[in-house]
Amino acid sequence: MNKSAEAFRTIGEVADELQIPKHVLRFWEGRFPQIRPMKRGGGRRYYRPEDMELLRGIRALLHAEGYTIRGVQKILREHGVDQVKAAAHRVAAAQAATPAEPAARKRGRKPVAKAAAAEQQTNARDESPVPAKVQILTAIRELEIARAILLGQPLNAVENGDLKKPRAGRS
């Protein structure tokens, strides 16, 4: 039995539709105060259509775009609920455009190099995508620069290959 788009949904129905466990929805309620399902007697949750949109956006940012919980909280704080809801539409459109690719589950922050590479591919659809070897070499270079900064070494040490190894006793 399919419900209309305006119908309220139970936590089980929401979990099935979003393909996430019920306990994750309860966890998100604690982390995102913007999620406010109606609660009836006995604590049974009923999610409104606007709650569903927000949950789809949160899921899209966390699972498809690789944001952390804190990253999504920051987006909600700085840009509002509508920006998070829009993320669900962006991801749905991207998945509709490339149905052959399986959705990869990523954790942590969205890497800057990857975001730039994706933007470059979007802007230049006629050009071939950046080879994986170039992406790997770029990532290694960025890590070497970050390491030099953390060790307090000049950036020209990266170019010369003169990076000093950290001492064993430090962490």
Rank of each mutant, 00 (worst) to 15 (best):
Q95N: 11
Q95R: 12
Q95A: 10
Q95G: 05
Q95E: 13
A96S: 14
A96L: 06
A96M: 08
A96N: 14
A96D: 10
A96Y: 04
A97F: 02
A97S: 05
A97H: 05
A97E: 11
A97W: 07
T98H: 15
T98Y: 14
T98M: 12
T98F: 12
T98W: 11
T98A: 13
P99N: 00
P99H: 06
P99K: 01
P99G: 00
P99R: 02
A100Q: 12
A100L: 12
A100W: 11
A100N: 09
E101C: 06
E101H: 07
E101D: 14
P102W: 05
P102V: 03
P102G: 01
A103Q: 15
A103G: 14
A103C: 14
A103D: 15
A103H: 14
A104Q: 12
A104Y: 08
A104H: 11
A104D: 07
R105G: 13
R105A: 15
R105K: 15
R105H: 15
R105N: 14
R105L: 15
K106F: 15
K106V: 13
K106L: 13
K106T: 14
K106E: 14
R107T: 11
R107E: 12
R107F: 08
R107L: 10
R107W: 12
R107A: 12
G108C: 10
G108Q: 10
G108T: 10
G108W: 08
G108N: 14
R109H: 14
R109A: 12
K110C: 13
K110I: 08
V112H: 03
V112M: 05
V112S: 03
A113E: 00
A113N: 00
A113R: 00
A113C: 01
A113D: 00
K114E: 13
K114M: 06
K114I: 07
K114A: 13
K114C: 07
K114Q: 14
K114D: 09
K114R: 14
A115H: 05
A115I: 04
A115E: 06
A116T: 08
A116I: 08
A116S: 06
A116M: 09
A117C: 04
A117W: 01
A117Y: 02
A117F: 03
A118P: 01
A118V: 07
E119N: 11
E119T: 11
E119Y: 13
E119D: 12
Q120W: 09
Q121L: 06
Q121V: 04
T122Q: 14
T122W: 09
T122P: 02
T122S: 10
T122K: 09
N123V: 01
N123F: 02
A124V: 05
R125G: 02
R125S: 04
R125N: 03
R125H: 02
R125M: 01
R125D: 02
R125T: 02
D126A: 08
D126Y: 11
D126L: 11
S128T: 10
S128N: 10
S128I: 06
S128M: 08
S128F: 06
S128A: 10
P129I: 00
V130L: 07
V130F: 01
V130K: 02
V130W: 01
P131L: 00
P131C: 01
P131S: 01
K133C: 05
K133V: 04
K133P: 00
V134A: 10
V134H: 06
V134L: 07
V134R: 06
